[in-house]
Design a protein around this nucleic acid. Structure first.
Lengths: 150, 150
DNA sequence: CAAGTTATTGCAACCGTTTGCGATTACTAA
DNA sequence: TTAGTAATCGCAAACGGTTGCAATAACTTG
């Protein structure tokens, strides 16, 4: 279950140093359940390594993102990160009411991408696409509590 | 050609005050050609009204956005604003190479919205959707100057 | 027009995130 | 194992953007 060993190998191969900070950030995210906020990662990492700096956390997460080791998801307007799904990319639907994030299979976007390509020659960045909205549960909750006052 | 008179009327009707700051921000955006960055608006507005504060610009733009007077577009990771198109909404394709923004008719997204609705009960926020990517011109320029070095 | 009410402002402090820089330390080669 | 080197770090200052608060001023009413 040491699912981040491949990530460590990637770091090595690309000539990046294996610092305790990087290993801790990695294992923090790996041990987390789904995506984590930056501060969440920072607080957890600081427990394991008290000198940990927030700037290092950001730099590390960006490096990991560049290497494809983690995936960035915008939840609300904060950045969250999760280990990249080895099964293949997925996208996210993020509920702005409960901040829940739901996976979205890439095939839902394939058609959209093709259309933009054909019609406009535009190549969209849809690798880590997230669409904001309201999930079914929150729509219902809103309906029940009388959400129609606008 | 005073295309922001309707906007002023909207402010009045909703009970908001017509301050010089608001009028200046509005006419700045109206006189601009397409969307403007926040600092662009701020600098221009400051010339007309030296006490203008950046916080006021943000507050004003957010108010206008709420009223539907202006539309927010994320260019790169900065916010840009433009007068809302009276002909009806349109979305944007934003080129991350040249920062150009191209209009995208809403019908390209209608199908996507319906699918999310039916399959997941998820209601996406697609009123002012912007998708990042690379436009046709920049793809070509990249091809010519040997962009395949990654 | 003058006085009262309260939305709005300018300021300054704050937020999350990024960056420059000198000190540290992971790695390389002997 | 030690010395050399450059990537990485911690720190602090800066960034774009937001917010609390006392002072101001746009509107209302008479």
């Amino acid at each position: 279950m040491i699912k981040h060993e491949k990530a460590i190998e990637t770091l090595r191969l690309k000539g990046h140093r294996l610092t305790p900070q990087r290993l801790i950030v990695l294992s923090t995210i790996a041990s987390g359940d789904g995506h984590m906020g930056v501060d969440e990662v920072f607080q957890a990492a600081k427990k394991a390594y008290p000198y940990m700096d927030i700037a290092t956390v950001y730099r590390t997460l960006h490096l990991f993102k560049e290497l494809g080791v983690v995936t960035e998801v915008a939840i609300g307007d904060r950045l969250h990160f999760e280990l990249t799904d080895p099964e293949g990319h997925h996208h996210h639907m993020v509920c702005r009411a409960c901040n829940g994030a739901f996976n979205l299979s890439p095939h839902y976007l394939a058609e959209f991408r093709e259309t933009l390509n054909k019609e406009f020659g535009f190549e969209p960045d849809l690798e880590h696409f997230a669409v904001s909205g309201v999930c079914a549960k929150c729509q219902e909750a809103d309906r029940k509590s009388g959400g129609n006052q606008g």
